[in-house]
Design a protein around this nucleic acid. Structure first.
Lengths: 330, 330
DNA sequence: ATAACTTATCGAACCGGTTCTATATCAACA
DNA sequence: TGTTGATATAGAACCGGTTCGATAAGTTAT
């Protein structure tokens, strides 16, 4: 494998001139250009991006930290980050943490070691303080509310969107509501926000029997549905923490011939359209794109993106079917 | 930012000795070790992985070329490659091609430019010859049959699995079958294999009205279903080219109250379980893992992985529910 | 006593780029 | 005719690691 020095030698020009030819930048005469191109050709020269990265102090790569790669929520978010990165000539690498703190710190160390130009946390288990501590090694943004911490972020106001959806339910006269929430120790506290929103709208704590914790997969949706119906035969709504959980709930309701129960999911995945349940669209496409764009801004910016309640089934709004299809396919 | 030379100077030892301490390898006395660690501490030294990569000639990264990031098939495949890579201390970067040949060549050029140690094609639009041409720049594997080309690969024998599934249908007395196939110009020719399998099992060409081409999303499943039923009211089976297409078909069948029609998907995604249709599991987890492992073998290896027909609905087999859940969740 | 190892360390070369500074030529301008 | 600015090129320093070869001291075996 030949390098820039070989090309310089063979072409009879200097290294810096060869560099200028490679980068097509600066003054080079037509003849010199030709000499050098001939030399590159005959030596079968290929530039080395590793050396380039070292010299420039820039990798053109960002890391995306996510707890689970095979989870629809994070897949959708990661997709939008990757697309935004690609549009700016950056490559993106997926880093699965399993919500393991050591693993997350390992990824932060990769930033410290210049393996990436920046890091995006879609979710995390470590504290914001830890992230702040690592900011001196490179830019970091989060896809969740970072409150008073000096960390750029793009996120939806989850509590607000929960309150809105619950108000729709309340106004429609629904009172028997079961809720599923994610891992309670999750630092993003979306579990906490869910119960807070319930309290705010209905003026009381949700009954513990109608709250299903640690919900993550469609099987949790199945289990939760069974639990709710076992406790309350008059159940009217299942408010779940994700479309895949909602899908599990839908299936279980069909199994038990309780299609009268309304289901609400989150994230607006295609399955919600297929199985015809309502969902809260947290605009992950926008969040991912923003999270990338904020990475290289000089100031700390926090961008709150409004979510959208998509009503289907009995809650259905008169909406344009074509629009909805476009929405789902992006 | 301090470097290894600074550490050497401050600690009063040589660069090579510092390097040995950093890598915890080779002879270093206890006192020297301490001196150097103190110096690293006081200088807040952090190693630079870019320089390391250049010096070692190894990036510890692989690229995964896939046409669409937000497609369940490729997501599942990419997940398994990323996991396998991570287990071997490699990072993986997703490279979306949109089946654009220039884009695919751009990714091959990245391999040439040492941006990756290897490249995995989950699917492609360029010819195998082009891939062979680039092998001199680094290892490349494919997730499809590479036939006589000297390219390592992990794949399922699709035609064989199609034949098997169709035989099950034939033996059960089904004859009115609609089929959806992917983009016809797809070099992986899975579209061609589908119609070949039909011919082999039923001894005749499939009726063109019962063949839906360019099928990719659940909306294609909806459209195809409408087309099939419009042509043949006695339709019994929809044999689709993916679970998301099958899901669209299921939804449309429900809409039209034609739940009597059986649907067969491919890939064994959770949605198949949720909506209760049969599917061909092409073992993407195994294919992805193998595709990574083959990357760094010295010889060309082609690994055919048997697929599995998962019967649900009217085709259901007595299977263990628990096992199935494990399967879906991995 | 000396050969043969093991342990410990250093210096220099190397990986392959980018970029700053210096130098030189030539044309245009006053 | 000297000054200025654009064009063209070279050389060296720099980015920050790894590693080979040389040297030397201490230990063990014969």
């Amino acid at each position: 494998m030949s390098n820039i020095r070989d090309v310089a030698k063979v072409s009879g020009h200097s290294i810096s001139t060869v560099s200028r030819v490679i980068n097509n930048q600066g003054y080079v005469s037509a003849k010199t250009q030709q000499d050098i191109e001939d030399a590159m050709q005959s030596l079968n020269y290929q530039r080395n991006d590793m050396a380039r990265a070292l010299s420039l102090g820039k990798t053109s790569r960002v890391g995306i930290v996510l707890p689970y790669i095979n989870h629809p929520y994070f897949q959708k978010l990661a997709d939008s980050i990757i697309s935004a990165a690609f549009a700016h000539n950056y490559q993106a690498t997926l880093l699965q943490s399993n919500y393991n703190q050591d693993q997350e710190i390992y990824f932060l160390d990769m930033l410290k070691h210049h393996a990436f130009d920046g890091l995006i946390f879609t979710s995390r288990s470590i504290s914001f303080d830890k992230i702040v501590e690592y900011q001196k090694f490179g830019p970091i943004t989060c896809c969740e509310n970072t409150f008073d911490y000096p960390i750029s972020s793009a996120f939806t106001d989850r509590k607000d969107s929960f309150v809105q959806a619950l108000k729709v339910l309340k106004n429609s006269g629904y009172t028997h509501i079961g809720m599923t929430v994610s891992r309670s120790e999750n630092t993003s506290q979306s579990a906490l926000l869910t119960t807070e929103a319930y309290r705010e709208v209905f003026g009381e704590e949700i009954n513990d029997q109608l709250l299903f914790r640690e919900s993550r997969t469609m099987f949790d949706g199945i289990t939760a549905t069974a639990q709710f119906l076992n406790y309350d035969k008059k159940l009217q709504v299942i408010f779940s923490n994700g479309d895949e959980i909602a899908a599990g709930a839908m299936r279980q309701l069909q199994e038990l011939h309780r299609e009268d129960v309304e289901v609400i999911g989150q994230e607006n995945l295609p399955i919600g359209f297929l199985m015809n349940f309502s969902t809260i669209d947290h605009r992950l496409e926008d969040i991912g794109e923003e999270a990338f764009n904020l990475l290289f801004k000089d100031e700390i910016i926090k961008k709150s993106i409004p979510s959208k309640f998509i009503r289907r089934g009995k809650l259905e709004d008169p909406t344009d079917y074509e629009d909805e299809i476009d929405e789902i396919l992006n």
